[in-house]
């Protein structure tokens, strides 16, 4: 369990984290979402005591992290990929960490096996790919069999297999009753992994809720209708208080529930070829929510900004998720 109280961090005249209060519960994966520069990494550094807060407090399992008897048994963290001395072998990297917490050397072999790096244990980490570096970082995080795990953008640079592996790992860790706190600016990633969400923008907490609640509260349900009688359908829906965007025979209807749209068609004898509820994706909900809080707006040459937050999610594949 991680608890923050009015956590604030100021770098010079820039407020990176602004009065953040939250708690991260055990037994579930908590996603920490925000656009680039929102303060996610800073918050994680404050939790670990790497940076000292300007104001406020944060505790891990009820104590400041630095006061933990055996810090590696409390928290395992993957902060940046390759926070590693490249001249040291994977084995010695993990060994020197294990020794600080009096963990037995055989535990090193165990975590190397777990992340699939046994074959390269004696190789210097300088030659590791980004994916292998991430695995080594995760091995370090797991060394102390910690109650709390923190991952900062863990899927960055990983191939699909690696992404799936991390997803399953995080879920498995949470199912064992651990606290799993994972940051990402990839909304689609969180949609698949997280149970609970903390959303921040410009250092401030914007939302603290479950994934389902988040989507529900922050996006409109839409209904897609395909009909040969699009004009009449549009009039009927508009008269009933709905809003319609038409693309030929396909209508997107908002502000009316699916059932009401179906009834309207039935009562007026309109032939429907499709009636689908559109689930807004986390991606859309997130963009909607953080468009005011995006720190770096990128101009797109020759085109107008779309979705209110261009640039903030430049790593996100641009397809619209409709499920």
């Amino acid at each position: 369990m991680i608890e923050a109280q009015s956590l604030t961090k100021r770098y010079g005249d820039k407020l990176a984290v602004d009065q953040l209060s939250f708690s991260v519960q055990p037994g579930q994966v908590t996603g920490f979402l925000g656009p680039n520069g929102a303060g996610k990494s800073t918050t994680m550094r404050l939790i670990l005591g790497l940076d000292a807060p300007t104001a406020g407090t944060v505790t891990v399992n009820g104590r400041p992290f630095a006061a933990a008897d055996n810090p590696m048994r409390e928290v395992g963290a993957l902060l940046e990929a390759k926070a590693i001395h490249g001249g040291r072998s994977a084995y010695h990297h993990l060994l020197c960490l294990a020794q600080t917490n009096d963990l037995p050397a055989r535990r090193v072999g165990e975590v190397l096996e777990l992340v699939g790096l046994s074959d390269v244990a004696r190789k210097r980490s300088k030659g590791f790919s980004l994916g292998m570096g991430q695995r080594l970082g995760i091995a370090a995080a797991l060394l102390g069999d910690p109650k709390v795990l923190m991952f900062d953008e863990p899927v960055n640079g990983l191939d699909p297999e690696g992404i799936l592996w991390i997803r399953n790992l995080m879920k498995a860790l949470a199912s064992e009753g651990r606290t799993v706190f994972v940051s990402s600016h990839l909304m689609s990633e969180m949609e698949h992994t997280a149970d609970h969400l903390l959303v921040i923008g410009r250092g401030r907490l914007i939302a603290d809720c479950t994934v389902a609640e988040f989507i529900e509260q922050n996006s409109e349900q839409q209904v897609r209708v395909r009909t040969p009688d699009a004009d009449r359908m549009t009039q009927l829906v508009a008269a009933d208080g709905g809003r319609v965007t038409a693309e030929g025979a396909t209508l997107r209807i908002s502000r009316l529930p699916l059932e009401r749209v179906g009834d309207l068609a039935f009562e007026n004898g309109i032939r429907l070829h499709e009636l689908t509820a559109l689930q807004a994706s986390l991606e859309q909900a997130f963009m909607e929510l953080t468009k005011e809080a995006v720190e770096y707006h990128a101009a797109v040459p020759g085109s107008r900004a779309q979705d209110g937050a261009p640039g903030a999610t430049s790593d996100v594949p641009s397809e619209k998720v409709e499920a």
């Binding site: 390759k82 490249g86 960490l97 600080t100």
Partner: peptide, 18 residues
């Protein structure tokens, strides 16, 4: 200084924050 140039210092201080 190599701990700073490689980023190792943050891993070191996470395993032993004292």
């Amino acid at each position: 200084s190599s701990e700073y140039s490689t980023g190792m210092i943050r891993t070191s201080l996470t395993s032993m924050p004292r």
